[in-house]
Simulated scan of single mutants.
Amino acid sequence: MTPSPLSPYLPLAVVLLLAGIMGVAIPFITSLLGPKRPSAIKSTSFEAGSESSGPARQRFAVKFYVVALLFIVFDVEAVFMYPWAVNFQALGWFGFVEMLVFAVTLVVGLIYVWKKGALDWES
Rank of each mutant, 00 (worst) to 15 (best):
K116Q: 06
F60H: 15
L33I: 13
K115A: 09
L17R: 09
L10M: 01
R57H: 09
P83T: 13
R57G: 07
L119I: 09
G49E: 04
S53H: 07
L106K: 13
A40M: 05
N87V: 01
F88Y: 15
P55K: 08
D75A: 07
L119N: 02
K36S: 13
G23Q: 07
R57T: 08
A40N: 08
V86P: 00
S4Q: 07
F102R: 15
S4K: 03
Y82Q: 12
S45Q: 15
F64D: 00
A85V: 10
S53P: 01
P83Q: 14
V101I: 14
L18V: 15
S123W: 03
A85P: 00
T30W: 04
V66P: 01
T30D: 09
S53D: 07
V97C: 08
Q89F: 00
L12T: 10
S45T: 14
R59P: 04
T44E: 12
Y65G: 06
S39D: 15
L100G: 13
L106I: 14
F64L: 05
R57C: 07
I72W: 12
S123F: 03
V107Q: 15
I26Q: 10
V73I: 11
I72D: 07
L100K: 01
S7Y: 11
F74G: 04
I29S: 09
E77W: 06
F71E: 06
G20A: 08
R37V: 01
F96A: 13
F88I: 10
S45P: 11
G92H: 02
L91A: 10
V62M: 15
V79P: 00
Y112Q: 04
E51T: 02
L18I: 11
R57A: 14
R57L: 13
F102E: 11
V15K: 01
L119K: 00
L33Q: 13
G109R: 06
D75M: 04
Y82P: 01
S123T: 12
I72Y: 11
P55H: 05
L16N: 07
K116M: 02
K36E: 11
L32C: 05
Y65K: 03
S50I: 00
F88D: 10
W93Y: 05
K36R: 15
L110D: 01
L32H: 11
V113R: 02
W84S: 12
A118H: 08
I111L: 05
M22R: 12
A13L: 15
A68E: 03
V14I: 13
A25S: 08
A19Q: 08
T105V: 06
G49Y: 02
T105K: 01
Y82W: 12
F96W: 13
V79C: 02
D75F: 08
P5A: 05
Y9F: 15
G95Q: 06
S52M: 03
L119E: 04
G54M: 03
S4A: 06
V67Q: 14
F46A: 04
G109D: 10
